[in-house]
Amino acid sequence: MREPLLVLDNIRKNYGAIEALKGVSFSIGKGEVVALLGDNGAGKSTLVKIISGGLEPTSGRMIFEGQDYVARSPAEAKAAHIETVYQDLSLCTNVDVVANFFMGRELTRRVMGIPFLDERAMEAVVAKALANAGTRIPSLRTKVEHLSGGQRQAIELNRFVHWGGKLVLLDEPFAALGVEQTRRGLDMIRQVADQGIGVIIITHIMQQAFQVADRIVVIRQGVVAGDVERSKTSPDAVIEMITGQNLAGAGAAGGMGAVESPA
């Protein structure tokens, strides 16, 4: 068993009378890749927002690196080194690669007390970080709108790793990518996880989940309907958990730990 990074314990979220989450519990270890699956409206995005800031759970608690954790805003989550990489939502395409890499954390030089952007120092840092990760981008002064989807994702992930990220949530990371770019993206996720970073991937595409995840967590109707190791399950079994045809994997609300795959 890996050292747990984030533990969710009986997380509930009500919107008025509607229960979006009815007690979700699971955990993710350091360097582990978890695929979070579930049908539309199952509560995935609510869960993501609770973890990455922006929504507070109605009840239940989260333990991150052994300490109680609540993120009232994305900034708080970020301070705890938890971040979501949304498809095309985390980059400003109207500025260049360097500006995006340092978004909100710009290096400055003070001249008479006034902070000025230290462009040269920032560019050097970005060049080094991207080179270490083996990402090649023609010019760091190119506006991001001129870059491909794969390059954008590489920037986002490298940025996350560079700033000491510990847990990253990827929301439909390959929705708009081609075959080759997706393959490189999956490699990159593996590489990120190997550095001890926890990765949660939210996806609809079963094949991708099985390609990269160590464990598969299925959310259905606001509860964990299945929490299985990839090696012990099959796409068909997971689909049954998602649609609820077979309830063998549907642990009780609050159930924790791996559940055996349905026969």
Binding site: P74, A75, K78, A79, E83, T84, Y86, L89, S90, L91, C92, T93, N94, V95, A99, M103, G104, E106, T108, I114, P115, F116, L117
Partner: peptide, 24 residues
């Protein structure tokens, strides 16, 4: 063009959600 304030305004105009997520 040269200060974080200006850079942040430009980025907010480009993608407000991203800047909010970045903690600006």
């Amino acid at each position: 063009a040269k200060t974080p304030f200006g850079r942040h305004l430009v980025m907010i105009g480009g993608n407000e959600t991203a800047t909010y997520r970045a903690g600006i």
